[in-house]
Computed example of a mutant assay.
Amino acid sequence: MVKFTYYGHACFLLENDHCKILTDPFLTGNPLAAIAPDIVEADYILLSHAHSDHLGDAPEIAKRTEATVVGIPEVLAVCTERMDDIKTHPMNIGGSCKTSFGKLRMTLAIHSSGVAGGIACGYVIKIDGMHIYFAGDTALFQGMQVIGQKESIDYAVLPIGDNYTMGLEDAALAAQWLNTRNVIPIHYNTWPIIEQDVDKYKELTERLTRATVHIVKPGESLRLA
């Protein structure tokens, strides 16, 4: 059984009996952070890009926990400039790798990267027989249809905050294109500029798609099945 725990913004933890996978650990300075960076645990840290509200505390958490940080090479270089003795695994768009929990595939995201030469990305995470799509910060793009065709997406973790990423309508269409069974919305309400009515998103998405939308507040967990 995989448990999803939301720590706020784009940071969440996926864990089973053997592994903990942390995403975009922006905890210091995050007004909605549900855990402190000095106690969060991780075996892997997945980075979508190098903006400070995503790369966050990744190098320091990796140093303390001995987690492997996964990301685009230019993004990982930002991490190793801060902590030069951490474990990293560089990837690029379209690549995949086997892991202790299953498999990772790096996907395209349409967004700026926060570092020269870098690009933003997302991930399809295969764990315990499920495919979980972490979109990262992204606009709606037609490649989401390919992602949904290549793997049967069980859970899509999608940004809905608008202004910097997809808003409600585009994120609902993303769920449709992905043909996902479930959606977990993230990246909203951290600041006024990305405030959104998540209940409206749930109603819109469930009306337009086959997906069930799970609203998980910071600090809450959801068992994935």
Rank of each mutant, 00 (worst) to 15 (best):
L224R: 11
R210P: 00
T65N: 13
E15V: 03
H54N: 15
P73K: 14
I45R: 15
L224A: 06
I186F: 05
I45K: 12
P59D: 11
H111Q: 12
T209V: 08
D84C: 07
D170M: 06
A120P: 08
D17Q: 09
N189E: 03
A116D: 15
L208S: 05
A62L: 01
A62Q: 02
P185Y: 11
G122S: 02
I132S: 02
F26S: 05
L27Y: 15
E203D: 14
I86L: 14
M91K: 03
I160F: 04
I193V: 10
P192D: 13
M144P: 00
L108D: 03
D24W: 05
N189K: 04
C19G: 01
G56F: 08
D43R: 04
G167D: 14
W177R: 02
D197A: 07
G117E: 13
G29V: 01
W191F: 07
Q196R: 15
N30Q: 08
T107Q: 06
L204I: 15
N92F: 05
A58N: 10
R223M: 14
L108R: 12
V40H: 12
H187C: 12
D43L: 09
G8Y: 13
R210V: 10
D43C: 03
A34R: 13
I119G: 00
P31Y: 09
R223Y: 12
M83D: 04
R82T: 01
I125T: 07
I132F: 07
P37F: 07
V124S: 01
S113Q: 09
A174Q: 14
L222S: 05
I93Y: 01
F134N: 08
I110R: 11
G95R: 14
T23L: 11
T205Q: 02
H131Q: 02
Q196L: 10
T99R: 09
M144F: 14
K20V: 12
G167H: 10
Y7V: 00
Y155H: 05
T165W: 00
G219D: 14
D137S: 10
W177Q: 03
I127P: 01
D162F: 04
R210G: 15
T68V: 15
A36T: 10
K87Y: 10
G129C: 11
W191P: 00
I72Y: 13
H131M: 00
C79E: 11
T99A: 07
M106F: 03
D57W: 06
P185N: 11
K87M: 10
I147C: 02
G102W: 09
E220K: 10
P37D: 10
P31V: 08
Y123P: 05
G129F: 09
F12I: 02
L104P: 01
T138M: 12
C97Q: 04
W191L: 03
L27N: 15
Y123E: 09
L224V: 13
G136L: 02
H18S: 08
H51R: 09
M83G: 01
G136K: 00
N182H: 11
V183Q: 00
